[in-house]
Amino acid sequence: MDALRCSICAEPLHPVNQSLRCERRHSFDIAKQGYVNLLHARVDAGTADTTEMVAARAGFLSGGWYEPLTDLLAECVTGHGEHELVVDAGAGTGYYLARVLDRVPRAAGLALDVSAPALRRAARAHPRIGAAVWNLWQPWPVASEVADVVLNVFAPRNPGEFQRVLRPGGLLVVAAPGPGHLAELAQRLPLLDIAGDKQHRLAEALSGRFELADRAETARTVSLAPADVRQLVLMGPNAHHLHRDGLGEALDRLTESVQVTTAFQVSVFRRLP
Rank of each mutant, 00 (worst) to 15 (best):
P179K: 00
H200V: 15
Q199V: 08
G169E: 09
P168N: 07
P179T: 06
E204V: 09
A213C: 11
G208C: 06
R220G: 12
A143E: 15
P226F: 00
G169C: 10
A175I: 02
W140G: 00
G208T: 03
E184F: 01
R215Y: 10
T221H: 13
K198N: 05
V142C: 05
G160M: 13
L192F: 14
E217A: 05
L182D: 15
A213Y: 11
D197P: 02
H181Q: 03
G196N: 05
R209C: 04
D193W: 07
A155N: 07
A216V: 13
A225Y: 02
I194C: 09
A225D: 04
P190D: 13
R201M: 11
D148V: 01
W140A: 01
R188W: 14
G170P: 07
L171V: 15
D197R: 00
V142S: 02
E145K: 01
R164L: 12
G196S: 08
V142D: 09
A195H: 09
D148P: 03
L192A: 13
A213W: 08
F210P: 01
P141N: 08
S144V: 14
D148I: 02
R188T: 14
R157T: 05
L202H: 08
N152C: 15
A176W: 03
P177D: 01
D148L: 06
D148W: 08
H200C: 11
P168D: 10
D148Q: 04
E145G: 06
F154P: 03
L172Q: 09
E211M: 05
L206F: 09
A205Q: 08
S144D: 15
P190F: 02
L224V: 08
E184G: 00
R164V: 12
L206E: 04
R164E: 13
F154I: 09
E145M: 07
R157C: 06
F162I: 06
L202I: 04
A175L: 03
L151S: 04
E184M: 00
A183W: 01
R157W: 01
G160W: 13
A225I: 04
E161K: 07
L172F: 12
V142R: 00
F154T: 06
L182S: 12
A225E: 09
K198Q: 09
L192I: 13
L212Q: 11
L212W: 03
E204W: 05
D193K: 05
V142I: 04
L202T: 06
V165N: 06
A143L: 11
D197I: 04
P159R: 03
P141C: 10
R215L: 11
L166Y: 07
A216F: 13
P156H: 12
E145P: 00
R215I: 12
L166W: 14
A147V: 02
A213R: 12
V222P: 13
P156I: 12
F162E: 08
F154Y: 13
T218F: 07
S207M: 00
P168F: 04
L224I: 06
L202C: 04
G196H: 03
G180Q: 02
R164T: 13
D197E: 08
A195S: 11
A176G: 05
V165W: 05
L206V: 11
N158P: 05
A216R: 15
D214T: 09
L182W: 14
